[in-house]
């Protein structure tokens, strides 16, 4: 399936760079990981309506992290129709449309990527378990760092932010050894 081949790095890099630029030109730099907290906040507030409360100055929460910075996360969770949350939903829709336009993914690829299967076999359960634990560690780390690959690495280094460089150094210091140990076969 030729559709699996990514864009040439020159075209792809310029296209991705233009999206970063458009974001900061029109609104603000791109970031994603905060929205996991916002969705958690929305879900928690459904389960326990006193989780987020409106005050005279704005919003607050029984959770200290949700309430920090004058309750800006609490405010976003109380009003999900905000730029950053819609951005992430639109990103998902854009990726879906792009994948469908090039013919969709194969059935086996939808369970586990080929590189994973080449190294760890066809067990779906094993792949799902690692993806789940990976997701936990990634989002815990992203929230501790205050951003993720998009917010810190791409948007951060683009703006010459010192924090972006610190984050990127940490991310690759861990990612390269882990990937080299786990993915010896190319698939």
């Amino acid at each position: 399936m030729t559709a699996d081949k990514p864009l040439n790095w020159k075209i792809g890099g310029v296209a991705l760079g233009l999206v970063f630029f458009l974001a900061v030109l029109l609104v603000k730099p791109i970031g994603v990981s905060t929205q996991f907290v916002i969705l958690d906040g929305i879900l928690a507030d459904i389960a326990a309506p006193e989780f987020i409360t409106q005050t005279e100055e704005g919003y607050t929460s029984t959770n200290a992290y949700m309430a920090k910075s004058d309750g800006k996360y609490a405010k976003s969770a109380a009003n999900p129709l905000n730029y950053s949350f819609i951005f992430v939903l639109a990103m998902a829709a854009g990726a879906f449309a792009s994948v469908m336009a090039r013919g969709g993914l194969s059935k086996s690829e939808r369970v586990a990527p080929a590189l994973w299967r080449a190294n760890f076999g066809d067990s779906a359960a094993k792949r799902y378990a690692v993806a789940f634990v990976g997701g936990f560690v990634v989002l815990y780390g992203a929230r501790l760092a205050g951003g993720c690959t998009s917010g810190h690495m791409m948007s951060g280094m683009m703006q010459t932010a010192v924090s972006g460089y610190i984050f990127t150094a940490g991310a690759f210091a861990a990612a390269v050894p882990v990937a080299m140990i786990m993915y010896k076969r190319e698939g």
């Binding site: 690959t149 940490g170 991310a171 861990a174």
Partner: peptide, 8 residues
């Protein structure tokens, strides 16, 4: 946090 994210 970068280290954790990188590993995951």
């Amino acid at each position: 946090g970068g280290l954790l994210l990188g590993a995951g």
